[in-house]
């Protein structure tokens, strides 16, 4: 659907909208906002705003955080919320709010890397399979089926068993685990595109299979690739935080939300639930935002 068509549809839905404002090229502001609202819905917009706030807080943590996340103040250990420490302090007296902001960096960047890697590899496999068909496709499907046979988090654990606990080991393992989920969806979409007349038209005009796939098919399946990537991101956040919680991912003293739930759990057993509640809620919030946006993107990609 072209940009113009969307704008017009949006304006026809709202009868009072001045037609002139939509048609003149200078007036882009309102239609863009309306378009975003149309695509994401109210809940989706809320989720996007919340996620943006979290991302900004994480990215600018070195500037915004009130304290050094690793600075221990044993006298103030397990302090409750106060004007000094808005969310209180953990068992070592470190400021929980600062640790949340720095922890969100890892909790967002790690899964982001997982999804980036698996999306690239999965999309390439899917496009190659869909274009070549026949035996190549059969081999790719077979490899994906084998990957499907291992539950996602187990891949992360296997990687740790071989290369030792660290964030990058887990990211590598999970990236492999997420390949089949991306590849299966993209392959289905690419197969539908491949059978459309524009592909055979381009083929008859002498374009190479590589060219058609990379320029035209890839561009048309792009919304599905992105939607699938965003909605997988939520699962990646959960898996990566779980591995950190088990003590096999990010290593202390680095702040990470999974690790914070773990250390907060120990404090909770001693009667101080602050850290566990704060870090647990932030993980749920991040996953909820990402999932809501992903769901909306998927239903948009399907309806186009």
């Amino acid at each position: 659907m072209s940009e113009q068509a969307v704008t017009e549809q949006a304006s026809s839905a709202q009868t009072q909208a001045p037609a002139v404002a939509v048609k003149s090229d200078g007036e882009h502001r309102e239609p863009v906002l309306r378009r975003i609202l149309d695509r994401l819905g109210v809940v989706g917009v809320i989720a996007s705003v919340v996620l943006t706030v979290i991302v900004i807080a994480a990215v600018f943590a070195p500037v915004l955080a009130p304290y050094d996340p690793n600075f221990p103040d044993l006298m103030g250990a397990l302090a409750g919320p106060s004007a000094d420490h808005l969310l209180g302090a953990d068992a070592l007296g470190r400021d929980i709010l600062s640790r949340l902001m720095f922890g969100a960096q890892v909790t967002l960047a790690g899964p982001g890397l997982v999804i980036l890697l698996s999306t690239i590899v999965g999309t390439v496999l899917a496009l190659v399979g869909a274009w070549c068909g026949g035996r190549v496709d059969a081999v790719i499907i077979w490899v994906l089926d084998i990957l499907f046979a291992v539950p996602g988090i187990v891949f992360g654990l296997i990687a740790v068993a071989i290369w030792g606990p660290s964030l990058f080991t887990v990211v590598g393992g999970l990236a492999v685990a997420y390949i089949p989920y991306v590849a299966r969806v993209v392959r289905g979409a690419a197969l539908r595109e491949r059978n459309l007349p524009y592909v055979s038209a381009a083929w008859l005009q002498g374009h190479s299979g590589f060219g058609i796939t990379t320029t035209q098919i890839l561009r048309n399946v792009q919304p599905i690739v992105i939607a699938q990537a965003v909605s997988s991101l939520g699962f990646a956040v959960i898996d990566l935080a779980a591995v950190s919680f088990l003590g096999l991912g990010v290593q202390p003293p680095t702040a990470d939300l999974g690790l914070m739930v773990k250390s907060g759990f120990d404090s909770t057993l001693r009667g101080y639930p602050n850290e566990a509640i704060a870090s647990g809620c932030l993980i749920v919030l991040i996953v909820w935002c990402v999932t809501v946006i992903g769901d909306r993107l998927i239903s948009n990609a399907r309806s186009v």
Binding site: A242, L269, T291
Partner: peptide, 22 residues
């Protein structure tokens, strides 16, 4: 359901132990 889907297993576990066991 939306909240349940976004909550990792270990967060639920920690919450349940804190509330109902401890």
């Amino acid at each position: 359901a939306a909240i349940g889907l976004s909550t990792p297993v270990f967060v639920v576990g920690v919450a349940l132990i804190s509330l109902f066991a401890v």
